[in-house]
């Protein structure tokens, strides 16, 4: 019985050491990813950038192509999601207004 306990303790120690190594010492480094895998706040800022650029370009097709990089949804849904996310975070009213104005177009 003591032999089995020692065996499982050794397994647990090995598993814990492996997890520590994989999580802290040498974690996975993501590379060569695509914009649709960005975190939601990065996506929100991306939408804000597209809105800012649209403000001077006035080209909805180009804006839609840019938005297609971060989501396969239709552009209006992407913008609505970004606005909802921006309302949760301390975005300035100017930024929110920019996105809302653009989202209504």
């Amino acid at each position: 019985m003591g032999r089995w306990i020692r065996f499982f303790i050794a397994v647990m120690i090995g598993a814990a050491a492996a997890m520590f190594y994989g999580w802290k010492v040498n974690p996975v480094r993501y590379a060569e990813t695509t914009p649709d895998t960005l975190r939601v706040d990065f996506k929100t800022d991306y939408v804000l950038m597209v809105a800012e650029v649209y403000h001077i370009e006035k080209d909805p097709n180009l804006a839609a192509r840019r938005l297609a990089l971060i989501s396969t949804e239709i552009p209006s849904d992407v913008v609505v999601k970004a606005i909802k996310e921006a309302e949760k975070t301390p975005y300035s009213s100017t930024d929110l207004g920019l996105m809302q104005t653009w989202g209504r177009l």
Partner: peptide, 20 residues
Amino acid sequence: YRDNAPASLSEEYKDSYRAL
């Protein structure tokens, strides 16, 4: 893959991000 940062993008998408 999800919740990534812009630093993990491929070079092609980094260029698009930088241009934006």
